[in-house]
Design a protein around this nucleic acid. Sequence first.
DNA 1: AAGTAAACTTACTAAATAGTAACTTTACTG
DNA 2: CAGTAAAGTTACTATTTAGTAAGTTTACTT
Lengths: 219, 219
Amino acid sequence: MSDTRRRRVPRPVREQQIIDAAIQVFAKRGYHAASVDEIAELAGISKPMVYLYLDSKEGLFLACLRRETERLVAAFQAAAGEAHSPELRLQSGLDAFFTFVTEHRASWVVLHRQASELSPAIAAEMAQARRAVMEQVAGLARAGIADNTGGTRLDDEEADFVAHALVGAADTLTDWMERHPEESPERMTLRLMNMVWVGMRNVLEGEVWTPGEAGTTGG
Amino acid sequence: MSDTRRRRVPRPVREQQIIDAAIQVFAKRGYHAASVDEIAELAGISKPMVYLYLDSKEGLFLACLRRETERLVAAFQAAAGEAHSPELRLQSGLDAFFTFVTEHRASWVVLHRQASELSPAIAAEMAQARRAVMEQVAGLARAGIADNTGGTRLDDEEADFVAHALVGAADTLTDWMERHPEESPERMTLRLMNMVWVGMRNVLEGEVWTPGEAGTTGG
DNA sequence: AAGTAAACTTACTAAATAGTAACTTTACTG
DNA sequence: CAGTAAAGTTACTATTTAGTAAGTTTACTT
């Protein structure tokens, strides 16, 4: 309402608007089915502007990928950095993740659900972005469990296993969240921690689950 | 070597070969980037045959989706059906899942990593296929936990939460498996059960994880 | 060994769309 | 109030690729 006909937007602002639009369209259609024309239209400009500012469709996608990865990792780190124990850091980090995904659903789709159909250059950058997220979680898992058990340290392989399981669970749980809009990110985190935390300790303590011993360890 | 120039294959056989090829190409390139020409060439025939037998690109993709979903669900059910307790059924089911994914990696990519970029018709079928898999796991989770705790029953919402977390974890763990080829499906299942099973019981028993109580319940 | 139906091909059309060349318009500066 | 650089446009090309029409070849029957 402040300015209905605000043409002539300065470049840095326009670039972000283009990326905003691109994220929506990429998420909705997928990389190939997304047309640069549609992105340009949603951004309120014509196609050549997109090419002038972002070089190519691939460059545009990479810009989206970079910006959103940065935002997600920043949110995760900011949240985890505030907490005082490793366990609380994992909680805060998961919380930040669910909050981010709730508020930027399209971003997450772009970041995570475009595994195939991409050029090698994009695939490489994608893998790296994924590794960055995974490394955050793996770090917390490793530190958290080591702390709880008094010094024993998960080796990188096991921490990585845990991180993959956690990120995967969190990812798919975003589908569940869509059908349960009443569920807050905080409650999502609690539920997931409930499911996973005790088990994570078990893995480390050698308290192995074995088929057939159902119910003998608990309650 | 049995027959170097085996032209003129009967239709049912050729159809399966086309679907085989399509799965590889769809998994490698994604739905849109995959060209019917490439699929035809990989199948050892020319493009019009694909259209004659499978109607359209969409029909071809749906055929892939249906056949592989059927196979996965069948493998899961067969494995789970053999076991005698709900807990063992979940174990067997997970085991079957990891085995399937190991042996048919491309199928899993097609089934699971093509969320966007699809026509409404395909998206609908995809969602249904996903629900079928999810329902298997949710059923086992519900039954398994109810059994262990002596009759208390997870409501559908919670069983669904658990199922989403499990399927999501298993999905992303396939990435981890790729970098750990020495890890058998059986060991994957054990690790995941270790991480998750005790926690699942906790969720149900109201043994709530709360921030700050780290390490008070365990060893 | 014809006859025939199923298996298969070549060679096209039509549409979509990434990317560009050549231009026009606005806002700001001296 | 010119001059100019940044912001923006229209109108094209070149390529890719889903889908088809019209024809050819092989295997199997009688």
